[in-house]
Design a protein around this nucleic acid. Structure first.
Lengths: 234, 234
DNA sequence: GCAAAAGTGTTTCCGATACACCCATGA
DNA sequence: TCATGGGTGTATCGGAAACACTTTTGC
């Protein structure tokens, strides 16, 4: 008899807060009988349901996490992981035996990455997790299954993509200042940018729209706000 | 009882010959009882075997097609297709019922694209296909399953990638002329390039090595040959 | 000698870089 | 009034683009 097979999706959800790039992790609830009781984190994900398309499955995972309708979330498939041993670790097996119908199934997972505006976002614990946290991307601990591999590839993909395409906006509030945008770019690319050159270049872009509105309640000269013209959404 | 599931890989194999970009298709052998008897083409692909990694599966498909050891073939995963209806067309079902154990299984397919040197390549009919052909990418007919969607995305991915990364070499003979390289770039990108500017730029690249050798037996001034330094392989 | 493609330099333009000071606000 | 980040202009450099003629070979 052939090995039982299953499909899942996993989502690498990026956010940005206080000049730091974050990723959303769930704390994996371990079974009572489990040996190690320390916390363990995983990427949010789930089995693909019968008759459910892959993109819909990823959207559902995201939606269940936030209990918010994220009508326009940026969510892209980026890679599929199918190593036959990817769910065969000891603790992975313990978890699967408690929470999955077919713990011995071979599971390949289609991975998505998502960029969200953290302030719109209110993640809640899903049924199979006890807690969600935003973790600094530099401080991601050892994760369940092959999720470190998935996360690393997601981050590399994001960095690669942002070199050529202006997708960073999805991480910022609707109205943002040019400094916020610059810091975001610096954090993701890891390079410092010259303020004047950056502003000149950005202001030339057709999809960055300056508003008349200014920041309020700040401790210094208030910055002009800008919006991203969503019609350019890739 | 849940729907039976299966994984497959499909390969979009690109080649280049006489200034035209080609794709390798297999003629799908239809069952005797089949209604329509006309030819139908499909991308090469197969089910992923138990305990076989995805990349290995794609390599195997490529190798079976050519019966040649392609030690260094350029072969990259690019997208996964999992629409629940993707194998539910009438002719698709006829084919599956004749050639697959679980014709009703839901199959998601991990798609790869490959760049090969056509002159090294000697594709043979695999057991499930009667013939293979190199088809001009502009003349690809209606294919089996969702293979037109897969092909379109592969071509888009190739065009996108080649904008920034020098992967075209994998399509050319080991020793090539700068004109061949220029034409290749023009065909893939769809844009004409200035000869002098192109040559200046290319000669500055560290991974294009000029040889002392020249073309022979041509009807005009023989061009200098160049090689791609494989150490730069992406 | 002619057809066919190879090969070669210079000028112009534009975007990328480097760099330092004044401004508006809340405390 | 001061601390904080916001906002601005110019000169230089280097790569990108435009452009036409001579060379080598086989026939």
């Amino acid at each position: 008899m052939a090995v039982q097979k299953d499909f899942s999706v996993d989502c690498v959800v990026f956010g940005y807060h206080e000049d730091e790039l974050k990723v959303l992790l769930i704390e994996q609830r371990m079974p009572e009988t489990s040996a190690g009781k320390e916390k363990r984190y995983a990427l949010p994900g789930d089995l693909v349901q019968d008759n459910e398309d892959l993109d819909d499955s990823a959207s559902r995972v995201l939606k269940e996490l936030t209990s918010v309708e994220l009508e326009n979330a940026y969510l892209k498939q980026f890679y599929t992981f199918g190593n036959p041993k990817r769910v065969k670790g000891l603790r992975d097996q313990q978890w699967l035996r408690s929470f999955r119908q077919d713990p011995d199934a071979r599971v390949i997972t289609v991975a998505y990455y998502s960029l969200v505006k953290m302030e719109d976002y209110n993640p809640v614990a899903a049924s199979f997790a006890s807690e969600t946290v935003w973790m600094n991307v530099d401080e991601v601990p050892a994760l369940a299954f092959d999720h470190n591999t998935i996360f690393d590839k997601a981050l590399a993909t994001l960095r690669e993509k942002i070199k050529y395409y202006p997708i960073g906006f999805h991480l910022l509030p609707k109205k943002f200042t040019l400094s916020q945008l610059q810091h975001l770019n610096e954090v993701i690319s890891g390079e410092e940018l010259d303020k004047r050159n950056f502003r000149r270049k950005v202001q030339k872009l057709p999809y960055i729209i300056p508003l008349e509105e200014k920041q309020k309640g700040v401790f210094h000269k208030p910055a002009r706000l800008h919006v991203y013209d969503e019609r350019f959404k890739e």
